[in-house]
Design a protein around this nucleic acid. Structure first.
Lengths: 227, 227
DNA sequence: TCAAAAGTGTTAAGTTTACACCCATGA
DNA sequence: TCATGGGTGTAAACTTAACACTTTTGA
């Protein structure tokens, strides 16, 4: 039993909600789930779960994300804590939101049936359970800021990708067109984006060079650049 | 009693920790507290408290901050949730950290005796309880980013201030010198920083113009600039 | 042969940085 | 009279933005 210092206060359930981003056919998508239990059966919501007694927050987020996508080692970042008193009708539940970036190619689409989930375009979401839309908005704005300063987009792409794909990804996240020449010029200055000799013909007749992200070069070049 | 859906999971104590920033004599300071109870009596920590059953997180943060500073309506921003399993020796406590910006002039120094607290230079902090140093580091980095894009510094200054004070504040937050002419040039372009005809002679023989922040001009000019 | 995506440089505009001296005043 | 902080402009460096045509190839 915890000392009186603690027990004079009330406890809460602690949940995790995952804003799972994916990139598919040029669109930024979110994996959302239709509740198949009461209350609010049929309402769309984020993928969620509870934090257990022996779990760190980040570990819980990873576990929840893995349970729902089958994928380990996904890039995740905390969005923040959401704790309006009435945000859950059944009990006092405070939720810590995390966003995840994953490569949709690795996602097994059969899970959509099992979890009653769908990948939906970020700009065409149905209305979401409670404060989930707020979490999504916050996560998206964090992602926008992040991708303008750090190479996190690679988590949403296959290991080898074309510059057109990378540009389309940036455009989808930022919600605006980018000039092709300016974009390629900037990418060229980033030594950690390596050109390979492999040509990908799935996107065009002519074919495009595939590139890869070299994390160890990135680590070296950016170990001082903290802001 | 909450439905079984919830009760199969464990609950946690939810705490608030406040990173209270102040600006005094050209230095960025933090209000920290020496624990006067066991365990870890005498160890320095952030100002904290628990979230109660009927409280939103933000309201709890405001309450805790008010209890410890006597000040209402302080500017506060969430830093994030910190929930390592063993971060508190007495019980599972997850803490949501908030930073606060306040005008030290309004702070009643007698509270320092009552709370065994002190204003300490941000660069000369003692070692802090558990993960509090991590919270401070994160809050400081958020504040740095914030002040480069939004006028939040005014919360740390009196309503009327000189440009030298404003510059010293920015320098203290960013941790680097700023060129005086470049700084003033930029401030001049910000219409929401209004020059008054009042001269302040406390800082120099010649005296300096006092300025004020005009929030309604700021709101008008920036209603579109979301990023 | 032509539609569709890949690839490629230059110039103008805007922003950021560097830099040094005179002013007003109270002690 | 002089030490102290207040106040002012310009030019170079750098970054960002705008812009259009040629190449390759499978259908």
């Amino acid at each position: 039993m915890a000392p009186e210092f603690y027990t004079s206060h009330s406890k809460v359930y602690l949940a995790i909600d995952c804003i799972i981003f994916g990139f598919q056919r040029g669109e930024l998508k979110l994996l959302i789930q239709q509740r198949n239990f009461e209350p609010f059966r049929g309402v769309w919501s984020l993928m969620g779960g509870f934090v257990e007694a022996d779990e760190n927050l980040y570990d819980a987020a990873r576990r929840v994300c893995e349970e729902l996508t089958g994928l380990k080692n996904v890039y995740m970042q905390q969005v923040g804590a959401f704790g309006a008193v009435d945000r859950d009708p059944g009990a006092r539940v405070v939720s810590v939101a995390y966003y995840a970036l994953l490569n949709v190619d690795k996602y097994n689409p059969e899970l959509n049936i099992k979890n009653s989930s769908q990948w939906r375009n970020i700009n065409e979401l149905p209305s979401l359970y409670f404060d989930h839309a707020e979490m999504v908005a916050e996560a998206r704005s964090m992602l926008k800021r992040k991708i303008s300063r750090e190479p996190v987009g690679f988590n949403l792409l296959p290991p080898l990708f074309t510059l057109s794909q990378l540009q389309a990804l940036h455009e989808a996240i930022l919600g605006e067109k980018i000039d092709k020449r300016n974009f390629r010029k900037k990418v060229n200055e980033m030594n950690f984006i390596e050109k390979t000799n492999i040509i990908d013909k799935t996107g065009s007749k002519r074919g495009a060079h595939l590139y890869r992200f070299n994390d160890s070069i990135y680590q070296k070049e950016h170990k001082f650049k903290l802001m």
